[in-house]
Design a binder for these strands. Structure first.
Length: 962
RNA sequence: GCGAGGGUGGCUGAGCUUGGCCAAAGGCGGCGGGCUUAAGACCCGCUCCCGUAGGGGUCCCUGGGUUCGAAUCCCAGCCCUCGCACCA
């Protein structure tokens, strides 16, 4: 029977579906609960996703073979704006979106209209599309319990999330506050990264506003380097731009027109009193709030009125930009007279350094500009020089003594403190803005606005302490991720957990808001335990009391000791029944997720479990997964640089796809899907299949197992090692090591076995069948279609009905392995000699070391690798003493030999009858070298034409060819 | 700058935790052979240098060190990747 995955695989898919094979219900067996992030169907499924879900599947299948009752569920995450945004972009006919849908995911024109509602879009990629997740998951043979699927937009799920957030609020872990957000001035609405047309990567900056003043009028100047306040020599405004005088809160401010609008959105009361062009304030002098010095406002074209306040302070000693601008202003000082500026006053402006830094002159900006040979503000190198100087000053610059308590400190250490100091003194204000233009997809300018927002208080000390404890007992795979969780818990601050629109659950007490995706997915694993059993319960009955009963039990509800709920209440009968499901499955044994989610989602997952559930229900393990590359480059649905599981499975078969994904890298390493390598994997599987067929068809007598020879025992001994190593590797989630061991590494052993053994013997046939029977079970988690098919052909039942193999001590034999290693090394030696001499021998003579040499070996083995000690003992023997140097050389050799080997091997070597080993392999040697082979005892009266026999040492026979 | 992970033979990629059986697995590529009418597929062997006897030399980013012995441990340096921070 040929290997036809397209014929085999659909049969198994159908069987599994019909049997409900992977539907798991509570039972007597040990429960294993494996979860993976539910997919976000804002597009189709590609191969990167395929591995995400196949890794947990392999583990699930492994645990099932181990006898566990395994639950592997899946749901669908649709919360928030990405899907809504995708629909909007589609409806607008945006080309990038159409490309992604049609080219990357093969959506036909006729289906596009189905995608015009958010849930229609989601539903399409959940199950309808060719590239839908459900189709992909089924094709891959994932052992999912499909009864439990849901979406995060379902009413019942929302009731669950409502319970979660009401509980958290009662526990004081939610807080309302103002928060800077990206805000579209066109739609007058907050926007997310997905809503941006331009500037997706731009983060807003927190600018210090230095409150320069003229009389009662404030001229706030924005800077990201508040420590330079003492180095300001002048200011710049754009003469062409529009500025306003506005009442800001109770003060009079002069800023650009754009800045006035932004300030109005940042919790300031702003009334524009008067509008004028920048020209008007050129020449004005203003007072530095820190130094009290008067500085003059100069004109400059480069000032962008849409950046921060539109009034720029100049620090020529530390900003190459400012330094060059000031030089240019001096050169053209005479042109400033019409503004009422005295040219001499401009020419007399000198940079004022406020910090010292090694590697630069006294005026760092000057030396930086001069060293780079920059002469004009048009020089493209200026930006680079500026960046470099800023970096150096931040990390290495020491502030001058005029800063009092901050003097002598490195900027990086005191910038924040210094800013707060001047803020509290009233010298500084604060403003948020983007350093680059940001444009929304609606075409409007995006600015930073303050919005009322609800926060999760991840900075709560008690909560952090609980989360830290959850990490302590967590199995982190790989182990070096543990530190990252701890680190994240340490620095995590408040997290805004709502959005203004999108799919999902409304904030229970304010339905203007929706709970955002990273916040509505922290404990949903518990929902899987009952998801398939609550469809018949009316939505409104899934209330607070229901979930309290479900998760905390009747006692907690009756006694009113559910945190935040004071009155005693009746438990809900149905919830008590369901509680058994939850108690059976929980906690999550392992969460398998992506490494970039450690900093947010996975840590949130720990926080929420630590708060809402007892310690016994905290997650037990998290395994991290790496990313996928395609032919060496990052996969990207928007660029169409993806392979769809359906395409790959059609070309190679699901087993090949799975095997490649699991075997080419450990789960936490990045993998690279390369067509040539995948093709090779398919060929290997096919070869395995063909060999298996020979074994399945072989006619094996009943009593064949009684005719095992040494080489059969050797293979079986190796098989036991393979079982142990594969099991250990899978216990550590090392899918690559496990599959390499069970598949490729054992193939190497088989290669030797085939060369060595007479395969027509019943004993050999029996051995190969035994090997196949074991290997199919070891491989079943990886290639379930093939393994089940072959196992059924071999034994009459699928591999998944059988048990995971365990090493059989009866077949473990170091002695057998050591004996074979002697044959192997001798074979290699003979080959070497033949290769080097270039001869084709007719006779090969093998001389085994004589008994006295083996006696010396025994002495070395007993004494240990110490030449002096061994010689002392050996020389007590008169006969050996007579041999003199020969003994000395031998001891040197043997000490080396013993030092390099472990005790078990040495013990086995002590039991070996070397001559018998080579004699029994004579037939093999003769076939291998096509020559007559004779084995001699080097100590006997023997034929030794070249006088080689003396060279024999234990386990290294002398060899002569002729 | 901080944190994490790396630098291995033509390429890819194991080994490094637990130093010695490591000239260093496997795959790809290349070379030779078998099978075949032929190609492909498949099977076998070779693939750092020198060598007509199983040996020797050089080698795992660079330079030191520890050790009887280092790809593996320690120190210093260089370079790369990824996060974060910082930065008009």
């Amino acid at each position: 029977m040929d290997y036809e995955p397209q014929e085999i695989e659909p049969r198994w898919r159908q069987r599994w579906a019909e049997e409900g094979r992977y539907e798991a219900d509570p039972g007597d067996e040990e429960a294993t609960f494996i979860t993976v992030p539910y997919p976000y169907p804002s597009g189709g499924m590609h191969l990167g996703h395929a591995r995400t879900y196949t890794v947990p599947d392999v583990y699930a299948r492994y645990r099932r073979l181990q006898g566990d009752n395994v639950l592997f569920p899946i749901g669908w995450h649709v919360t928030g704006t990405p899907i809504v945004g995708a629909v909007e972009r589609l409806k607008k006919g945006e080309q990038a979106q159409l490309d992604s849908l049609q080219n990357a995911f093969g959506v036909p024109e006729s289906d596009l209209k189905d995608l015009e509602t958010p849930m229609g879009f989601a539903r399409y990629f959940i199950e309808e599309a060719d590239a839908s997740y459900k189709r992909g998951m089924n094709s891959l043979g994932l052992s999912i319990d499909w009864r439990r699927e849901f979406t995060t937009n379902d009413d019942r799920y929302s009731q669950f999330i409502t319970w979660q957030y009401e509980s958290l609020k009662d526990r004081g872990l939610l807080e309302k506050g103002l928060h800077p957000v990206k805000y579209c001035t066109e739609q007058e609405n907050p926007v997310t990264t997905h809503d941006l047309l331009e500037g997706e990567d731009v983060e807003y900056q927190e600018y210090s506003l230095i409150r320069f003043s003229n009389e009662d009028v404030i001229f706030p100047m924005a800077t990201l380097r508040p420590e330079t306040v003492r180095g300001v020599t002048n200011a710049f405004v754009n003469t062409e731009a529009t500025y306003v005088e506005a009442t800001v809160d109770d003060e009079s401010w002069i800023v650009s027109e754009e800045a006035a609008e932004k300030l109005g959105l940042q919790d300031h009361e702003v009334t524009v009193e008067r509008t004028f062009t920048g020209e008007e304030i050129v020449g004005t002098t203003v007072e530095n709030p820190v130094t009290g010095e008067e500085i003059i406002i100069l004109p400059a074209e480069f000032v962008d009125p849409d950046s921060a306040t539109g009034v720029v302070m100049s620090v020529p000693a530390h900003s190459p930009d400012d330094y060059v601008a000031l030089q240019e202003a001096k050169d053209r000082a005479d042109e400033l007279e019409p503004y009422g500026i005295d040219p001499e006053a401009v020419r007399s402006i000198e940079p004022v350094p406020i910090l010292s830094i090694e590697g630069y002159g006294e005026i760092p900006a000057q030396s930086a500009v001069e060293d780079a040979g920059i002469e004009s503000s048009d020089d493209p190198e200026l930006a680079e020089v500026t960046k470099e100087l800023y970096n150096d000053e931040f990390h290495k610059g020491k502030l001058s003594e005029s800063y009092g308590e901050f003097g002598g400190e490195v900027i990086a250490d005191i910038r924040d403190e210094l800013r707060e100091h001047f803020q509290s003194e009233g010298a500084f204000g604060l403003m948020y803005d983007f350093p680059e233009p940001v444009i929304s997809r609606a075409g409007g300018k995006v600015v930073v606005a303050f919005q009322d927002t609800w926060f999760l208080r991840y900075n709560d000390e008690e909560w952090k302490a609980k989360a830290s404890r959850a990490v302590e007992n967590l199995e982190c795979i790989p182990d070096n991720t543990r530190e990252q969780y701890t680190h994240t818990i340490d620095w995590l601050e408040e997290w805004p957990c709502i959005r203004n629109y999108g799919l999902g659950t409304k904030l229970p007490w304010d339905d203007d808001f929706v709970i955002e995706p990273l916040s509505d997915s922290t404990i949903y694993m518990s929902y899987y335990t009952v998801a398939h059993l609550i469809d018949d319960i009316p939505v409104e009955e899934l209330d607070r009391r229901f979930f309290d009963t479900l998760f905390y039990g009747a006692d907690a509800v009756e006694n009113g000791d559910v945190p935040g709920v004071e009155e005693s209440r009746e438990p809900v009968e149905r919830a008590l029944e369901l509680r058994e499901e939850w108690e059976y499955w929980y906690p999550v044994d392992v969460r398998i997720s992506a490494n970039d989610l450690i900093q947010n989602h996975l840590t949130f997952f720990l926080f929420h479990h630590a708060e809402l559930f007892d310690e016994s229900n905290w997650p037990e393990g998290i395994t991290i997964m790496g990313m996928g590359l395609l032919e060496g480059e990052k996969m990207s649905s928007s660029k169409g640089h993806v392979v769809l599981p359906g395409e790959a499975i059609e070309e190679y078969g699901a087993d090949t796809v799975r095997f490649f994904l699991l075997n080419s890298a450990e789960p936490w390493q990045d993998f690279d899907w390369r067509g040539d390598l995948v093709g090779n994997t398919r060929d290997q599987l096919q070869r395995f299949w063909n060999r298996a067929q020979e074994t399945i068809e072989a006619d094996i007598p009943e009593d064949a197992s009684e005719e095992l020879e040494h080489i059969d025992e050797w293979l079986l001994s190796n098989l036991q090692t393979t079982i142990a190593e594969t099991t250990d590797a899978l216990d550590r989630y090392e899918s690559r090591t496990a599959s390499q061991t069970a598949f490729y590494q054992f193939e190497e052993q088989l290669k030797w076995y085939r060369r060595r053994a007479d395969l027509d013997r019943p004993g050999a046939k029996w051995t190969l069948r035994e090997v196949l029977r074991t290997r199919l079970r070891l491989l079943a988690p990886f290639v379930p279609f093939m393994a089940n098919e072959l196992y059924e052909q071999l034994t009459g039942e699928p591999a998944e009905e059988a048990a995971w193999p365990e090493p059989d001590p009866a077949f473990e034999s170091p002695l057998v392995e050591v004996r074979e290693s002697l044959v192997d090394s001798t074979t290699e030696d003979i080959h070497d000699i033949i290769d080097v001499t270039g001869t084709d021998p007719e006779t090969v003579r093998i001389y085994v070391a004589p008994a006295w040499k083996h006696d010396v070996f025994e002495t070395v083995r007993e004494t240990g690798p110490d030449v002096g000690a061994v010689m002392g003992k050996v020389m007590q023997d008169e006969q050996l003493r007579e041999k003199g140097d020969a003994v000395n050389d031998l001891v040197q050799d043997l000490v080396e030999y013993v030092r390099e080997r472990d005790d078990e091997t040495l013990a086995a070597l002590g039991d070996v009858d070397e001559q018998a080993v080579y004699e029994s392999a004579t037939g093999f040697f003769e076939r291998e070298f096509d020559a007559a082979v004779d084995v001699y005892d080097a100590g006997g009266d023997i034929e030794d034409p070249a006088g080689k026999a003396d060279q024999a040492v234990p386990f290294r026979p002398a060899i002569h060819i002729e």
